[in-house]
Design a protein around this nucleic acid. Structure first.
Lengths: 329, 329
DNA sequence: CTGAAAGCGCTTACAG
DNA sequence: CTGAAAGCGCTTACAG
């Protein structure tokens, strides 16, 4: 069924059918009702491609996920939930795209998408530069690129707060487990850690900066190695995300090092399993769902040519559970 | 830039440009090179809508996720990883759609998608019937609908095996934690559980069938209630997924009931955190990534009009860790 | 309030 | 090997 056949059946022109479909005013009530009835009868839906070709408007947004996105799935799911909730209210579609060389500019060039939401893209991704040059619209989550629209939390402040929590418990020997090196989050948190130790006049030891890649398994191995070695061990460990903190807990449990009696552990993200780890994890809550929602909102308001806030910083919360306690040294 | 302008610049017709783009044979080498060069020069990409309108072919597949998909995120992520890996090799796009009334038939009618992959749809979803009636193509993951193509594991056998594992350890009082009621997985696992108890002549108690909804939090509450009550308690608990098993472990830990000394706990799925729970979880491994991959493969082979296996049952593995042990009663 | 017709940017059967 | 032209199914400026 196409518009021509519908028009024929109704005894009107295709123009009229089109106008009914697109809710134009000034259509005779009878005509409208008649057309609507026939559309209903044949369960007709306008062809998406024909429509877009003549309208020259696209209503598809791409969600760009890092090439290797298995690391923190809860994070992704919650962001997606927020985006979906928002997109559901509209006629827009969501295209899921894994970040690959040149793919995104191509999607824009083909007119397949009208905007892109980047989920924590690595720093210095060349694609952002290309898009900005071509005046394509994108929103960043947990990232920053010049003055492009972005949704984030105050990463630096959150890191300071969780470190201060450890410090106030008496910890002076604090280690950190890093995420992947090209992640803005990882970089900022490490930087803040170094600055914090400096300010508080605490020892900054190279072997207390552990490389965990945001992964549970990697972290587990690295922590086990540290505590099995002859080097001095920290009394507190700050992991840059909860998944890694779970790896830390696992390693310490196997080494029979009690948490928090001997070593305190703190994470970042507050993912679904964090309250159920043993012991429950002290961490920083990020409003992931809200972040996805706001990203989509910004996207829509831009596409509707409304004014928009270029930068939205959402509130975080320090969640204190049982994995952190008084320092005993 | 459109095809007309490219043609002009090359001094050929649009037909020739189109043929070059679509890799037709029998084009003069010089012509082809020239056209390619101009395309390159202007970074031209054919308009997606115009192309599809005239070709009448769509290369977009929808991944349909249950309305509330926050329950088992690792599962979703891995499936998605498999699908992405496969789709990456092609020119297809992936549209992410949350299952809502009538939305999917509409996408087909609009010609927006040419196929759909359903991720664990609830049993008796009316949409499958509609699609089949309209001869639309879909693949099911972890579900079953008449003789539609599906990817799954042998759910019944896997459940039997994990229960047998508990039985062989001496457990005679086995409880189960159920997932959401309209999930095929949940239903099959419960059925198998009941049958197993019957066969082995074990007590089937109503209050040992716990409703957990595939969620950690719900399960935690339900288990805590059971073990705080005066009723007889089981020596083993089989949770229908790992997330719920984590909830069981959490509840038991708080009640100071040692696992596996007093109560053994087994799960299902083998998600990323399972080896890191306390104690590490005995469970059934599902090859999620492979399932996504196979689903996409079936989809592509169908769209290429190749023959295909209607049903692919992938192997599972029983993973024995420290959360299960000899029964002491 | 409605219609005839041009146009969106491609592809492809037909003709040469 | 290549071109002129019809056609895909819509929308919309123009005219009435």
């Amino acid at each position: 069924m196409n518009i021509k056949e519908i028009a024929q059946e109704c005894g009107v022109s295709t123009a009229t059918v089109s106008r009914v479909i697109n809710n134009f005013p000034h259509i005779h009530k009878k005509t409208r009702q008649n057309v609507l009835a026939v559309i209903q009868k044949y369960n007709y839906t306008p062809n998406f491609f024909a429509r877009n070709l003549s309208k020259k408007t696209v209503e598809t947004v791409a969600l760009i996920i890092p090439e290797n996105f298995s690391t923190s799935s809860y994070y992704f799911m919650e962001v997606l939930k927020g985006i979906s909730a928002e997109i559901k209210k509209t006629d827009f579609s969501l295209l899921l795209v894994s970040a690959e060389k040149d793919k995104i500019p191509k999607l824009f060039a083909e007119k397949k998408i009208c905007g892109a939401i980047f989920l924590a893209p690595p720093v210095n991704t060349p694609v952002l530069k290309t898009l900005q040059k071509n005046k394509k619209f994108f929103v960043l989550i947990n990232a920053k690129y010049k003055n492009s629209p972005r949704i984030d939390i105050n990463n630096v402040q959150a890191t300071q707060e969780i470190l201060t929590h450890l410090y106030n418990l008496g910890h002076r020997k604090i280690a950190i487990v890093m995420g992947v090196k090209n992640s803005l989050n990882a970089i900022e948190r490490l930087k803040t850690y170094k600055k914090f130790l400096l300010t508080k006049n605490l020892p900054l030891k190279k072997h207390w900066i552990l490389q965990g890649n945001f992964q549970l398994e990697t972290t587990y191995a690295v922590v086990k190695k540290l505590f099995s070695s002859k080097t001095e061990t920290p009394t507190a460990i700050f992991a840059e995300n909860d998944l890694m903190a779970a790896g830390v807990l696992k390693a310490l449990a196997e080494l029979k090092i009690p948490v928090p009696e001997k070593v305190s552990v703190a994470g970042f993200d507050n993912i679904n399993i964090s309250p159920y780890l043993n012991p429950p994890l002290t961490t920083v809550n990020q409003p992931f769902e809200k972040m996805g929602q706001m990203a989509m909102k910004i996207m829509l308001s831009f596409l509707n040519k409304e004014k928009l806030n270029r930068e939205i910083i959402l509130p975080h919360q320090i969640i204190i559970r049982q994995s952190t306690g008084k320092a005993n040294e």
